[in-house]
Amino acid sequence: MEVIYVQADRCLGCKTCEIECRIAHTDTDTENTLFAAVSQLRPPKRRLFVEQGEKGKTPVICRHCEEAPCIVECISGSIYRDEQGFVRRKKERCIGCWSCIMACPFGVVVRDAEAHIAVKCDHCPDLDTPACVTGCPTKALQLVDVDSLPQERRKELLLKKEV
């Protein structure tokens, strides 16, 4: 399964990922562009958040948990897992009870106060690569196969020991 891998020490806090996320989630008939996004009557919400931590800057993103607390707590069946395994939200079924927001340990489900619905990362189902990953200029966000990551790590570890 492909997941978004965050290398926090690469993050410069430029927030391009947040902007690309908003552009990708712009509700427009024409092409999704920055200018289309900013001229929306209700500008699109971001689904990931660049935060300042003690040690530095880091994007905080949805982990699409296997045991997703937001799915467990969603009483209307709005939050579900799609065929690819990503945790998504059916707009029309959301009743705005905010149980998902309270359940998410990462704080990445938020409220769209104007649309009265919960908003979260959908891993950009219409794109080959999520917009935030494509947009990141320093590769702090990368798409990796979660099953091959441990092997890569082991190799890195061995390399370090050899040095």
Binding site: G13, E51, P137
Partner: peptide, 10 residues
């Protein structure tokens, strides 16, 4: 304003 853009900072 936190975090501020690292490209600008550099």
């Amino acid at each position: 304003q936190q975090p501020q853009c690292g490209f600008g900072e550099l």
